[in-house]
């Protein structure tokens, strides 16, 4: 979203314009929900966290100084609300070491990928993202879906740019490994049916 239209939306939100709030929700609900889901790993909790994040943003828009993008500010709220939800449910962010092997059959994987139906590919990648532990899914979602820079991601997660770079690399590698395994399963299931 452009900086100018951001400013206009912020101004209207600060005035308490309900229509502006509806626009605001419409623009960011998918990404806020995606971030929450990547962390809490449960659709019901993710919706509750997302609603809570929007309410919090609406109530504290007066304190928004504009030193970050509106989206970055909102994602930061959503990220912290998701962690609070985990804390409340006495769960820890999933840090289990995903057993991933070195991606070796990349050419076969690419070929299988190309031959799969588009919808099927979409579903597989959504599932694979959901299986990633910790912040990996969050970082990949912010990087690919929102095209946020490493610096902006570091602001959302409150970590250094270098950590983002390392985690992004690790996340890609893990995703490739999960995808490779899933595609094998899918391919097997195609032959079995």
């Amino acid at each position: 979203m452009g900086h100018h239209s951001d400013q206009h939306l912020i101004k209207r939100l600060k005035e308490g314009d309900k229509q502006a709030f509806i626009t605001f929700i419409g623009q960011y609900k998918h990404m806020v929900y995606t971030l929450a889901l990547r962390i809490v790993k449960n659709e019901e909790d993710a919706e509750e966290v997302s609603q809570d994040a929007f309410l919090k943003a609406y109530q504290s828009i007066g304190t928004f100084k504009g030193d970050a993008k509106l989206s970055t500010w909102l994602y930061r709220i959503a990220y912290h609300r998701s962690l609070d939800c985990l804390k409340k449910n006495k769960r820890k962010p999933s840090t289990t070491q995903l057993q991933y092997e070195e991606v070796t059959n990349i050419q076969i994987a690419e070929m299988t990928w190309d031959h799969m139906e588009r919808m099927e590919r979409k579903q597989i990648i959504q599932r694979a993202l959901g299986e990633l532990p910790g912040d990996d899914g969050v970082i990949l979602s912010l990087f690919y879906f929102e095209s946020l820079s490493l610096k902006e991601i570091s602001e959302v997660l409150n970590i250094s740019v270098n950590s983002v770079k390392v985690r992004l690399h690790r996340g890609r590698k893990r995703l490739a490994s999960v995808l490779e395994k899933m595609m094998d399963k899918e391919t097997i299931s195609i032959y079995e049916s």
Binding site: I22, I25, G26, K29, H30, M31, Y33, T34, L37, A46, E47, S50, Q51, V103, I106, Q107, A109, E110, W113, R118, R121, K122, I125, Q126, L129, L140, S141, Y144, F145, R172, K173, L175, A176, L179
Partner: peptide
């Protein structure tokens, strides 16, 4: 190669959809 593969795969994915009555 696998970075390219992930870039390509992620291009086809979309963010998750919340419920229809979310707003």
């Amino acid at each position: 190669s696998w970075e390219r593969f992930i870039d390509k795969a992620m291009q086809e994915a979309n963010p998750e959809e919340p419920g229809i009555d979310f707003t």
